[in-house]
Design a protein around this nucleic acid. Structure first.
Length: 689
RNA sequence: GCGCCCGUAGCUCAAUGGAUAGAGCGUUUGCCUCCGGAGCAAAAGGUUGCAGGUUCGAGUCCUGCCGGGCGCACCA
């Protein structure tokens, strides 16, 4: 059963006649088509089934028309369409919607406890718009599941320890100790230090990666390599390294960062590389002016040159990288032996990040029931690893404790591969901690199902965790579900803190709020200042959230700031605006008139509006079943659209009774459902804007 | 090599296996004496990447290509 897909016709449609026709005809068709060519047989079957479906539909329609209690029953193209008696059905819909109010659409309690883990930000790192998508999705999903009748626990899992924290603190101690972080932005400041640490530690790899990339795809560069190396020889007489470079490039083999004899070789070579790129750039620019096909090469060269330039600015880092790596390992050991001074620093800086996260959650109206911290499950994780090793599920391979999952499951084909569960030096991995966390979710919080709202790139990893839990004998492993969603990218490509093109949540939020304030100042200057501010937040943040939720989970979002700043068209403000309009009408009446309402003679717009209203409870269940807030996002937009159509054609306050009362009921019901639907997305429904 | 995701209007995206594939942006033309113009009306824009298959019926399911993205042993 589904709604009849024609405008202005309210009812349900069924395809059951096709199924009956198929059953009835199966034997006969086999007989008749014997000996016919495939094409002929197909056409014949198609014809016969259609005819029969239509005949059955017509028969059923006749019967229902007589015995049923509907406005009209029709057989069309084999479909059986049952058209509602609008007066009665519409009254029923409006009555329930208005009587239930904020509870309209709520599902029956399911008696199932579900934990939704989302957000999982890392302390000491920046909170960017990729994290925003996760929060919006996880929170909307939680709200939808709860409304659909599940008992929901919203859980956050703070990455407050791990290599990233150690790197950040190493960099802080080594290069920024004693500096005063900006008062309100200490979390962000730490994030910048982390990014610097990452750049420093991956410096050699980044340099060599660029070099390899150029060598792989730029013939002109490769042809110039003899001259470049001669130049290098004049400046820096390390024959071994020059021979190495020449050999690798000539044979098309990768250059490796740790293969150099002398620390200064690349430092000296880098300016030579830059000069070569500059020269190629000049030539490519000239070529691009006459030949549009040369544009691609020009763009590639520009990108390489930009990367070269960034790396050149800190070329003096090269010799230090191995030493830094040692220092990071030592810093990790300080954490492992719980060095009091280090732990104190960790606690202090961790609080800086948490301060920022809490501010963001408050702003987004997101509230967690359970807070997990990676630092709290390290020991429990080690215990599980020990047990896995004792029971022979895990083994030591090249000094590394791993679970060879495919082997343990007896799978021939590589599927789950191998999961390391502890570092060879005994420090914990993400996996160590996640094993413990999974156990905790079910045992400590007694949940029936656990959902991980995590980036799609971790799909294999999470499947590995679930499988290891299964091998360990954890029965609820089958109740673990990974809700994967795609990444947020920029028009320029993937975000990368190392490349310095990360769009931070704070920056976007400030701009969106600023824009919202400007617009409200322009549209509604007479509002009291505090109302303006509230509305600006509701509209600005609502718009940002809607942008994250109005795309399917498995689609990449290309974040465009201009789009985020536009409050027109298919966006939250459109829906909020419809809500505000409805409020304007309703505030002009004393009390909502009691039903039943005169709904027998309805316009097309009225039928479509009521039809959409009636759909809400089903849509909630659908969204919950599929884990798709998008379903609700689409629904509220469609409702707002139909309301606007209605608003244009059907005067409410000026309509004569009893139409006026009926329309007021429609407005009230619509307003309520816009509010309910937006609430499921975590978006506010302002009364004015 | 193995595996996952995405190809729909110029752009960004919708469409529980069902009837005539819909929105927004952008473009063109209109609408504020009328419950709020963050709105509305109209026009233009499509071989749903390609080729097969399953089905009464395929944008949707299956197979193979083509194009793009991503993941695969000590990051999280």
């Amino acid at each position: 059963m589904r709604p009849i897909p024609f405008p202005g016709v309210w009812g349900t449609s069924t395809t059951v006649c096709y199924q009956i026709a198929n059953e009835q005809l199966s034997e006969e068709l086999e007989r008749v088509t014997a000996g016919l060519s495939k094409k002929e047989a197909k056409r014949l079957v198609q014809e016969r089934v259609r005819e029969r479906a239509q005949a059955i539909a017509a028969e059923l329609a006749g019967w229902l028309e007589e015995h049923g209690d509907f406005a009209r029953v029709e057989a069309v193209n084999g479909y059986l369409n049952i058209v509602y008696d609008t007066g009665r059905f519409a009254n029923e819909v409006l009555r329930t919607a208005l009587a239930s109010g904020p509870a309209f659409g709520r599902g029956e309690p399911r008696g199932e406890r579900v934990m939704v883990e989302y957000s999982q930000p890392n302390t000491h790192k920046a909170f960017h718009i990729g994290h925003l998508r996760n929060v919006c999705l996880g929170n909307a999903l939680s709200r939808i599941l709860r409304f659909a009748g599940f008992d929901v626990l919203e859980a956050n899992y703070i990455g407050d320890i791990g290599l990233h924290v150690i790197k950040c603190l190493w960099c802080y101690l080594r290069f920024h100790q004693g500096e005063e972080p900006p008062r309100e932005q200490r979390g962000r400041w730490l994030g910048e230090i982390y990014a610097e640490a990452d750049r420093r530690l991956s410096y050699r790899n980044d340099v060599v990666e660029l070099l390899n990339e150029i060598v792989r795809s730029d013939q002109i560069f490769v042809q110039a390599i003899d001259r470049m190396l001669k130049e290098l020889w004049r400046e820096h007489k390390v024959g071994e390294d020059i021979a190495y470079l020449l050999g690798q490039i000539a044979h098309g083999r990768e250059i490796r960062p740790d293969a150099f004899y002398d620390d200064q070789t690349i430092v000296k070579f880098w300016p030579i590389v830059g000069r070569q790129l500059e020269q190629e750039l000049v030539e490519a620019q000239a070529a691009a002016e006459v030949d549009p096909n040369a544009r691609k090469r020009l763009e590639q060269l520009e990108e390489w040159y930009e990367r070269w330039r960034r790396l050149a600015a800190t070329i003096d880092w090269w010799p230090h990288v191995p030493q830094w790596e040692r220092e990071v390992r030592e810093t990790f050991q300080r954490w492992e032996r719980k060095d009091p001074e280090f732990v104190r620093l960790w606690e202090e800086t961790r609080a800086w990040s948490m301060e920022e996260f809490l501010r963001i959650y408050e702003e987004l109206d997101v509230h967690f029931d359970v807070w997990f911290y990676e630092s709290e499950v390290e020991e429990e994780g080690r215990q599980i690893v020990r047990e896995l090793l004792e029971r022979g599920i895990a083994e030591i391979s090249d000094g590394l404790p791993v679970v060879k999952i495919d082997e343990k499951l007896g799978l021939e084909k590589e599927t789950y591969r191998t999961l390391p569960i502890l570092r060879s030096d005994g420090t914990t991995l993400y996996s160590t901690k996640d094993l413990a966390l999974t156990k905790r979710k079910f045992e400590q919080y007694k949940v029936d199902r656990a959902i991980w709202v995590v980036d799609v790139r971790q799909t294999l990893y999470l499947q590995q965790i679930f499988k290891v839990m299964e091998l360990w004998g954890f029965e609820q492993a089958s109740k673990c579900y990974h809700l994967a969603y795609e990444t947020v990218m920029l028009p320029s490509g993937a975000m990368s803190s190392r490349l310095g093109n990360v769009v931070l949540y704070e920056d976007v939020a400030r701009r969106v709020l600023e824009r919202a304030r400007e617009i409200i100042e322009e549209k509604n200057p007479t509002l009291p200042p505090d109302v303006k501010e509230t509305v600006a937040r509701q509209v600005g943040l609502g718009s940002l959230k809607y942008g994250m939720l109005s795309r399917d989970n498995n689609r990449v979002i290309v974040f465009d700031i201009e789009e985020a700043l536009s409050f027109e068209g298919h966006a939250a403000p459109y829906i909020q605006y419809a809500h505000a309009r409805a409020c304007r009408i309703l505030e002009k009446v004393e009390a909502l008139p009691e039903g039943p309402y005169a709904l027998d003679e309805l316009t097309r717009e009225e039928i479509e509006l009521i039809e959409q209203i009636a759909l809400f409870p089903d849509e909630v269940q659908h969204a919950a079943d599929e884990y798709k807030p998008l379903v609700i996002a689409n629904y509220v937009y469609e409702l707002a659209k139909r309301f606007n159509d209605f608003y244009r054609v059907c005067p409410v306050l000026l309509a004569p009774e009893p139409t006026r009362s009926a329309r007021l009921a429609m407005v009230a019901a619509t307003r309520q459902i816009l509010e309910n639907g937006l609430a499921l997305l975590g978006i506010a429904a302002p009364e004015v804007m």
